[in-house]
Amino acid sequence: MTIPRFWREIPIRYNLMGSKCPLCGTVFFPPKEICKICRRVSIDQMIHEKLSGRGTILTHTTVHEAPTDFESQVPYYLAIIELDEGPSVLGQIADCTNGDLAIGKRVHSVFRRVSEDGVSGTIHYGYKFVLDHSR
């Protein structure tokens, strides 16, 4: 990941900054410039909406074959989480084992190291999730 791209996305990665359409109330994450329901009339109207990080597991999977940057973490756990504000997000579930995960379980976001640009490059911090009752 390039440094400018990571830097631009810091509010999204650190604080789950999404956007909200003031016309219909739909929340988007990652943030959208245009509401996909209201379309043209929503241009320049979208507002920042920080998400609570609370949500429910819709589906989950265990990753055994990972991209190079994530190899040291296998097996790790990915889930699609329906956030309480509406949008769904793909995220890693930390501090758990496969047996802990189940559809419908509640999670909340935490601040973790997501990846790094080798041993001398920048560290990419961001959100992951943990199960509500384990942590």
């Binding site: 040291s72 930390a94 935490v110 190291r113």
Partner: peptide
């Protein structure tokens, strides 16, 4: 955990 360091714990 593997993905924790002094910064992540400070933030939490």
């Amino acid at each position: 955990a593997q993905d924790e360091d002094a910064a992540t714990m400070a933030v939490e």
